[in-house]
């Protein structure tokens, strides 16, 4: 798969990454090279193969329904870029 500048722009938008327009061709060529490289997988027929999501095929463990966490807002918000009145602040969201 060969990607062009518009593809990269679209992917960068989905991933919320600011990409310098001047670097789009470089990204496009790098990403295309990687995609071409991984497409080596196409050579093998996997139609009958179950995908493997986890190396160990275990089942999910369940947690008892207990409240174990205390309020640590002050500690957690000490590393936050912008808070006020206990709320995290972001530029105005319009819905």
């Amino acid at each position: 798969m060969s990607l062009d500048k518009d593809d990269v722009r679209q992917i960068a938008h989905l991933a919320r990454l600011a990409v310098d327009d001047q670097r789009l061709p470089e990204h496009a060529s790098n990403l295309s090279a990687i995609l071409e490289f991984v497409e080596a997988m196409d050579a093998v027929d996997t139609a009958a193969v179950e995908p493997l999501a986890h190396p160990l095929e275990m089942r999910q463990r369940l947690r008892p329904d207990q409240v174990s966490e205390e309020n640590q807002r002050e500690l957690f918000q000490s590393v936050a870029p912008a808070v006020e009145g206990g709320l995290y602040l972001v530029p105005r969201v319009i819905e």
Binding site: V38, M41, T46, V49, E50, P51, L52
Partner: peptide, 11 residues
């Protein structure tokens, strides 16, 4: 891509 890679992973 993703599904294919998970299949190859099993192989």
């Amino acid at each position: 891509y993703y599904l294919k890679a998970q299949q190859v992973r099993r192989l």
